[in-house]
């Protein structure tokens, strides 16, 4: 049993600006924990979490693998989130290198085929297109959930790059909900990028039917 990261340093005022870990976060932690032995055996050297928010997930990855086993690199478009991610790493004794940027911008050319574990818990809630766009442009907490058409507007932008990013035995964990048309998404990634995928965990939480999908090269 790997303990859930200590988030006691984050206060209500932090959660005014940064997404507070919720059922989707915990499902992702559970999925990573189920894969813990496989992940350790891979000896990842570069773990990248996109949209790291509170930093809970990357701290948890660090607890699974060990603080000095991998580089834990994170990005978030919301600078408050970058700061929380960094603080959560410190609180849990996991060095996290947090970068404020959109998705993988500024990193992409240098991390091609270099990412061993890629993680994205995206804004997956279906909204109007304009709402998702404004949320990303606003670079604030709304960007943590507003997902545009089918909730896929932001996810789709990262999916374009996943195959470029993954190392030869790299894997990608994505959180999705039923409204994201998961089987279509899986089929598209197989046909366009030759990436295999598997739903590793799913759970109903209130109105959301949450999934964690794991992609890897076939």
């Amino acid at each position: 049993m790997i303990p859930t990261p200590d988030l006691s340093h984050l206060k209500k005022t932090d959660y005014d600006n940064v997404y507070e870990p919720a059922e989707d976060t915990f499902l992702l932690l559970d999925a990573l924990e189920e894969d813990a032995e496989e992940l350790k055996a891979m000896q990842p050297r570069l773990c990248l979490e996109v949209g790291s928010g509170s930093g809970c997930v990357s701290s948890f990855m660090g607890s699974i693998l060990g603080a000095a086993t991998s580089l834990y690199l994170t990005t978030d478009i919301n600078s408050f989130a970058s700061r929380c991610t960094s603080r959560t790493g410190t609180q849990n004794k996991i060095p996290i290198d947090s970068v404020t940027t959109s998705l993988v911008s500024s990193l992409l050319p240098r991390i091609q085929r270099a990412v061993d574990v890629l993680i994205f818990n995206p804004p997956y809630v279906p909204t109007y297109t304009s709402e998702a766009q404004e949320a990303q442009d606003g670079r604030d907490i709304r960007g943590a959930w507003a997902g545009g058409i089918n909730g896929m507007q932001v996810t789709d932008m990262l999916l374009e790059h996943v195959e470029d990013l993954l190392s030869s035995n790299g894997r990608f964990y994505l959180v999705a909900v039923k409204e994201n048309n998961i089987s279509e998404l899986q089929q598209r990634m197989r046909q366009q990028y030759d990436l295999e995928s598997k739903i590793v965990l799913q759970r109903k939480a209130g109105r959301e039917h949450l999934h964690v999908i794991r992609f890897s090269r076939s």
Partner: peptide, 23 residues
């Protein structure tokens, strides 16, 4: 944290800036 390990992965991504944009 900007440690040199991360600095080594960051390049300029401004519009039109595609050469000599690293490090």
């Amino acid at each position: 944290m900007v440690r040199l390990i991360t600095h080594n992965l960051l390049a300029c991504h401004a519009k039109g800036c595609t050469t000599n944009n690293f490090p």
